[in-house]
Design a protein around this nucleic acid. Structure first.
Lengths: 112, 112
DNA sequence: ACTTACAGTAAGTCATGGCTTACGAAAAAA
DNA sequence: TTTTTTCGTAAGCCATGACTTACTGTAAGT
């Protein structure tokens, strides 16, 4: 399952911050490591995980590697969440049905 | 941020399996630990994490505790993913614009 | 050719967290 | 009241993984 790698990739705070930093546009590894508390190799390792999860992609420019966000990489996670999300609608519909039944049999008190 | 706890909660495989098992309806801790490879206390600890992330809720019935899925607990994660997801639409719109400009200046060949 | 800049990998350290067994609490059953 | 069932928590163990400091490679500048 692809969403598994995405979840573990985004679970780490540092890695998620790097991922979010890429929203400001494509950046090199050094640029991403600039203001951060961790070292540049650590950023490289995080980018590797993000890449293998399909969340970012890299492009070589000279000796530098420009990383960019891959928005579509979130699709599996979104799909996974949605499989549960439909449950919200089902539960809501069931709740409505229950309330309608209760109001229908309005002679009895609720025994909740 | 609420989505952070949700991500770490769902990142673990065992915990995610328990979460998914609850789709079949509310179950007690013992029932959830039944066919699983880990011990019952381990399941309890996982349920605690899921509860603090807002993904499940518990209800006492006798000495047993019945856990149920809280679908709405996924809302923060869904919202978080959507903040990136709009980027997909933006990128798609930008791509369309680029293609329209290219077809507008149809005298030139594409240099991609 | 030599140096500089940039990045990935290797090796090792250390904290986090998932697991176990043991124990304590609370409600139902006897 | 004593026993049984069910569960949460404490304490400790151990694997995973996040981080560091090397180092290796590669492309560009001089």
């Amino acid at each position: 399952m692809a969403y598994e790698k995405i979840l573990t990739a985004l679970a780490d705070t540092t890695r998620r911050e790097i991922f979010e930093d890429l929203r400001r546009g494509p950046q090199s590894v050094s640029e991403l490591a600039k203001g951060r508390a961790v070292s540049r190799p650590a950023v490289s390792q995080h980018l590797k995980v993000l890449d293998q999860a399909g969340l970012v992609s890299a492009e070589a420019r000279g000796t530098a590697r420009i990383y960019r966000l891959n928005h579509a990489g979130l699709a599996p996670l979104r799909a996974y969440v949605d499989t549960f999300w439909t449950g919200v609608l089902d539960a809501f519909a069931a709740e409505i049905s229950t309330q309608m039944e209760n109001s229908d049999a309005s002679t009895r008190d609720q025994d909740d």
